[in-house]
Write a protein that binds this DNA or RNA. Structure first.
Lengths: 351, 351
DNA sequence: ATGAAAGCGCTAACAT
DNA sequence: ATGTTAGCGCTTTCAT
């Protein structure tokens, strides 16, 4: 009786939060029964179930997560580790993972990694320190040999989004970047372009390498020898695309088409073209890769490859959850891509 | 002895994770001493401290987070609730909050809210279900009377980013949106424009209302009566800006300048102008608001108001942490804004 | 400086 | 169908 007053009140600063015991006592049942009710387990009479629910509501009872986690040996926490090249990309990644997590009780913690060196050797401790049940990792860090090895030997459940399966077969969700880049370059070649340039993404990034490979293969298939001067290194950022665009477009014998390894860099190239008053697509074609929200926000809207980042993240979360709950690991999952034709690429100029 | 083998090995599936007891036994001390060492508490001989550290390392010991949370009554988890109008905005918000959290042991959980109705009445349960120590909330949901009331009566630590202090004085970090919009409109008026239009953001959003107010005040100050036809409702999305732009620019007597309530909508207006081959800024001036990354990615680059979203989130996290740890609540904190002049606004056309 | 014992609030295993 | 009894792995008194 004397203890009831503070408990019956609202939670928070006033009084203490009600515990399973308070509810049990108030409902006249054992704590196990309360536990059953709040975990939707069978073997409780409907009548009692209802009663317990009501008492719980009245006492404003919410199961203590830490206690539950401790007893269950599971935190229901998933970590998403990413390096931040593109806001639009990151957002899709998050939303995709979250979509799969919805309704499962799992939550998403974000870990943007600014410098890969910082996380090398610290990844697993970070995971432990946060009590994560598993992690989703993105390139390039997920293909970093040190980090990958650390992850593998820790036996922590993890999946990679767009990770390199040739480095290790451990779960990764990809698209066929090489084929996609080939298709994209081929499309541009079909428009009559002969001088194509590419802005390459971060070299340590599997996709960047494969996209370059597909680009070169398309050129060779068309009987064109790739020229080093037309292959500029970028870093998947708008700024790097802008700089690459300026370099490529500044001299007389400039390319008539530029492929960028992602949309952000393509937007940068577009910006450079505008600065130099080069009309796109009349005098210059520019194409991107990913089809993030940005692709439709620039002018002209980007012809690009749609990489289903949202679905890839969703799938990755799916694989991870299975791995956490059943221990079953998956190999590479490959999703399909699409060539999205908008207005940033047109026929090669005749001049 | 018999139990040592699996413990000494690596963590994960093989054997069980080492506990504080394993370390204590192996180091020949009590668990309390181990606890002291791993919490950097005093009263342990340096020699013993070192020994315990070594044993911990050898056994690959990592304190169990759930157990620690349970005993300490703290999860060290912060929730960030946001509605997703703009990827660039959301990313900055996250990075800002995370910057303050770095090194504190607190982690960030993200809760994108698609439909505010879903979260009404469910906010607090979500917080409890996730065991959060506190939350950062953004508009418009943080100014929703139902949600705000729920939050207040739960006594959960929370802060708002850009929340309306006139609805409630509870902690919120803002800029003076009204003054900023006034300054921006005044800048445009100084360029000679007389027919100014505005694309308004989501009405339930405090900033949207204040920006509209500032815009109108600037017009009146210049002796111009605001016209309803030149005030178009948007939703803070690129798409809504595009549609608003098309409507505004389609008829003959179109405005010579358009203010958008955020950069995403300004980018949409820009897109509409390009579609209609209206040169910006020669024939039309367009200005944004926020100065997110997008402002520099479009052409021409946006003249806009820099709202320090990153710093606001950082500050919000700071206030929240103080509230969690000391119980001290803060009132409104106001940061300063800047007018950022780029190239999307120019002198009014003479024709 | 160090340790023993008692929780933290829940779930799991095992009665009944 | 329901309850009892141990933990889960740590931190917190409080002794020593």
């Amino acid at each position: 009786m004397a203890k009831e007053a503070p408990i019956a009140g609202m939670t928070g600063k006033i009084g203490k939060r009600a515990t399973i015991r308070d509810v049990a006592k108030a409902a006249g049942v054992s704590i196990k029964t309360v536990s059953r009710v709040f975990n939707d387990e069978p073997n409780v009479r409907e009548e009692i179930r209802e009663k317990v629910r009501q008492v719980g509501q009245k006492l404003n009872y919410h199961p203590n997560v830490a206690a539950r986690n401790l007893a269950r040996r599971r935190s229901h926490l998933i970590g998403l580790f990413f390096e931040n090249p593109s806001p639009a990309y990151v957002t899709e990644l998050q939303m995709g993972a979250l979509k799969r997590l919805r309704g499962t009780g799992y939550r998403l913690l974000i870990f943007p990694v600014e410098d890969r060196a910082d996380i090398r050797g610290a990844m697993v401790s970070t995971v432990y320190a946060s009590g994560l049940d598993g992690v989703i990792v993105t390139p390039p860090m997920c293909d970093d040999p040190v980090i990958l090895e650390e992850l593998l030997s820790s036996h922590l459940p993890f999946v990679r989004v767009a990770g390199d399966s040739s480095i290790h077969s451990a779960g990764t969700v990809v698209i066929d970047d090489e084929a996609a880049a080939f298709d994209l370059a081929e499309y541009v070649l079909r428009l009559g372009h002969r001088r194509l340039a590419i802005v390459i993404g971060d070299e340590t990034h599997r996709s960047a390498r494969l996209r370059l490979k597909g680009f070169r293969r398309a050129l060779r298939t068309a009987g064109i020898e790739p020229q080093p001067a037309l292959e500029i290194q970028g870093a998947f950022t708008f700024q790097s695309g802008l700089e690459a665009g300026r370099r490529l477009l500044h001299h007389a014998n400039r390319p008539t088409a530029i492929l960028a390894s992602n949309d952000d860099m393509a937007a940068g190239v577009l910006q450079a073209a505008h600065e130099l008053r080069i009309p796109v697509p009349q005098k210059l074609s520019v194409v991107g890769f990913d089809d993030t929200a940005l692709a439709r926000m620039v002018w002209p809207q980007l012809t690009t490859i749609r990489q289903p980042i949202f679905e890839m993240a969703e799938r990755a979360a799916d694989i991870l959850l299975r791995q956490i709950e059943t221990g079953i690991t998956s190999e590479t999952a490959q999703l399909s891509y699409d060539l999205v034709i908008r207005s940033s690429a047109g026929e090669a100029p005749t001049s």
